[in-house]
Design a protein around this nucleic acid. Structure first.
Lengths: 129, 129
DNA sequence: TTACTGTTATATTTTTTGTATAACAAATAT
DNA sequence: ATATTTGTTATACAAAAAATATAACAGTAA
């Protein structure tokens, strides 16, 4: 699992980390049941504070991506409220579509972009989800 | 143009405002050449500070959604670098797709969501873009 | 003139973010 | 049993971002 923090980004460290872990789960780099590095290890690995990693992990648990266990550490466990998750996805999709429409992209154009991104993901994924 | 600030959101006021204006342009509630309320008016209308509105307007200009004119105020003017805009759209689309894949949504499911959102937009739009 | 535009400057307060040090309880390993 | 490692919590602090407040300027329009 490759994690890279962009110090020049306008996104907070914990947000970048959170999103990259979601990417890792989506691409099956990290699979359900597997553990992530401990908060201390990952913090030292990427050169940030322990509590920043802990914040990302906590939010990922709250949003239903992880299960935090003292025994095994942070384990991928996708048991979120699926309805709530899809609502959030719709909300974000709406934002993307709005920007696309502003640039005079049509429905076909946006579907094409979605297909490109999907292909990018499927190409990376080692096993079907 | 309806603008609504969610005080409980984790998004900054100026980000919420920025996104809602983009939505307004996408749905053609505000059309190219039309003016938005002045920074002072909009600030008072939604109950936030003038500078917060000004920040949203400035960023929207920088990202190529508005043209700011002392005469006419903030005018919708979509003359952004299209390549750059589409890159940004792809980046955000990638984030959406990642979350969707984590919830075991397939390509068809995501295309369906996209279609729903598009229909929502087209339904609202008074004239073709 | 008078009033309105975006814009800039300055200052202050509040919130968020990131870091630092420390400790606790549960589980694991040696 | 001892030592180590887990997530977790608490506290404190510094830095940055966000939001507000007041004021002023230059261009425009009625």
């Amino acid at each position: 699992m490759i994690v890279r923090i962009d110090y020049n980004s306008d996104e907070a460290f914990y947000v970048q980390l959170k999103n990259q872990i979601i990417m890792g789960i989506a691409t099956a780099e990290i699979r359900e049941g597997e553990s992530l590095p401990s908060v201390r290890d990952l913090a030292e690995l990427i050169g940030i504070n322990m509590h920043t990693v802990n914040k990302a992990y906590s939010i990922l648990r709250q949003e239903g991506y992880l299960k935090l266990d003292r025994r095994k550490g942070a384990v991928v466990s996708l048991n979120a409220d699926r309805m709530r998750a899809i609502e959030e996805i719709r909300f974000q999709m709406k934002s993307v579509v709005a920007k696309a429409l502003c640039r005079d992209l049509g429905a076909q154009d946006i579907h094409k972009i979605l297909d490109d991104v999907l292909e990018e993901f499927y190409g990376v994924r080692s096993v079907e989800h």
